[in-house]
C-alpha cells in the first residue's frame, strides 16, 4: 500500500543527461519492488502553480543507513516540473507518494531473462536485475538511446548482468541502431525465457513484438502521462486486452505500469479501438 511521506533531498548527481535524485522516504524502501514508481509534488502543496505530480520509476532503494530509508529517482530535465526537481539542494523537502503501481512479476524458477531499457527507461532495470540474480536467473541487458549521453545505467548493468549490449541510433556508443536489432540474437544465444522492458512506447511495442514472435512472454513498463498516479483521474489509460479477451481502457498507474507485452494494443495507443468495452457507438455524436 502506498504512503504519502515528506522526504528530504540527500543528494543529486549527474548521470549523462540525467540527474539521479536521492531522497529520504521513510517506510518506502521496505515495500518497494522493481517496477514501482513514485509521484512527487512540484513546489509547495499550498502555493505551487504546477499542481500535477511527476511520476518516476524507482531506480534504487536503501532501507538502512545514516539517512534511514531513501529512494533514488532518475530525472530527465524536460519541462518546468522536472527542471524544478533538478534544482533542489540537499535538505530540501519533497512530498512523495510511493510505492505506486504494479511492479514486474518475478519468475519463481531461475530462468533466463533479457532486460531492455530505452534511455532513462533503464532506471528500474538495475533493481530488477539484482532481484533476478538473487533468484539465480541469468540476466542479459540491452540498453539503447538515440545518443550516448542519453544512455543510463550502463556501469550498473555491467556489474550485474551476464552480458550487456549497448545500442545508439547515431552510433556514438555501442552498436549503431535500435535495441531490437541485437535482441533476437541475444534471445537465441541466452535461451531467453522472459523479456523485461522499460522505455518509450515505440520501443516497448517493438520489443513486445520481437518477444511475441519468438513465443516468449514480455513484461513492459509503460511511460504514460499521469495527473494523479494513484488511480483516480483516468488520464493515463491505454487499450489493454483482459484475461477475458475484452479490450478496456485501463489505468497505467494502478493496473500498470507493467503490462504483459502481448496484452497491450500498442498500435492503438492514443485511440479508443472500436471493439473496446463501452467505445462510442457512432462517430459524430459527442461523447
Amino acid at each position: 500500500m502506498p504512503v504519502q511521506v515528506r522526504g528530504e533531498v540527500v543528494s543529486l548527481r549527474r548521470a549523462g543527461l540525467y540527474t539521479v535524485l536521492t531522497v529520504t522516504a521513510p517506510g518506502v524502501p521496505e515495500i518497494t519492488r522493481p517496477g514501482h514508481f513514485a509521484a512527487i509534488a512540484i513546489g509547495d502543496l499550498d502555493s505551487s502553480g504546477l499542481i500535477l505530480r511527476r511520476a518516476f520509476s524507482i531506480h534504487g532503494v536503501q532501507s538502512r543507513g545514516i539517512y534511514g530509508g531513501t529512494i533514488d529517482l532518475v530525472i530527465a530535465d524536460s519541462g518546468p516540473g522536472t527542471h524544478w526537481l533538478t534544482q533542489r539542494r540537499r535538505g530540501d523537502a519533497l512530498d512523495i507518494v510511493a510505492p505506486l503501481g504494479r511492479p514486474f512479476s518475478l519468475p519463481r524458477d531461475p530462468v533466463s531473462c533479457a532486460l531492455v531499457g530505452g534511455g532513462y527507461g533503464a532506471a528500474p532495470l538495475v533493481m530488477l536485475a539484482e532481484h533476478l540474480r538473487e533468484r539465480g536467473c541469468r540476466v542479459d541487458v540491452v540498453l539503447g538511446a538515440s545518443t550516448e549521453d542519453k544512455l543510463f545505467g550502463v556501469l550498473d548493468a555491467k556489474r550485474i548482468a551476464s552480458t550487456v549490449t549497448i545500442t545508439t541510433e547515431d552510433g556514438s556508443a555501442g552498436v549503431p541502431g535500435r535495441v531490437t536489432d541485437p535482441l533476437v540474437d541475444i534471445m537465441a544465444r541466452a535461451n531467453t525465457d522472459v523479456v523485461y522492458a522499460c522505455g518509450p512506447m515505440g520501443m516497448l511495442a517493438a520489443v513486445a513484438d520481437v518477444a511475441s514472435q519468438a513465443g516468449i512472454l514480455s513484461q513492459c513498463a509503460v511511460e504514460e502521462a499521469m495527473a494523479c498516479g494513484i488511480g483516480v483521474c483516468m488520464s493515463c489509460v491505454l487499450p489493454v486486452i483482459g484475461d477475458d479477451g475484452i479490450t478496456r481502457m485501463v489505468r497505467s498507474c494502478v493496473e500498470g505500469p507493467v503490462f504483459r507485452g502481448d496484452r497491450v494494443r500498442w498500435a492503438d495507443i492514443g485511440t479508443v479501438p472500436p471493439d473496446t468495452l463501452g467505445a462510442p457507438s457512432s462517430e459524430g455524436i459527442p461523447r
Binding site: 502521462a225 483521474c233 483516468m234 493515463c236 478496456r248 492514443g270 479508443v272 473496446t276 461523447r287
Partner: peptide, 8 residues
C-alpha cells in the same frame, strides 16, 4: 470507454 488520450 471514455475518450482517446491525451486526456489531460
Amino acid at each position: 470507454s471514455g475518450r482517446a488520450t491525451p486526456r489531460m
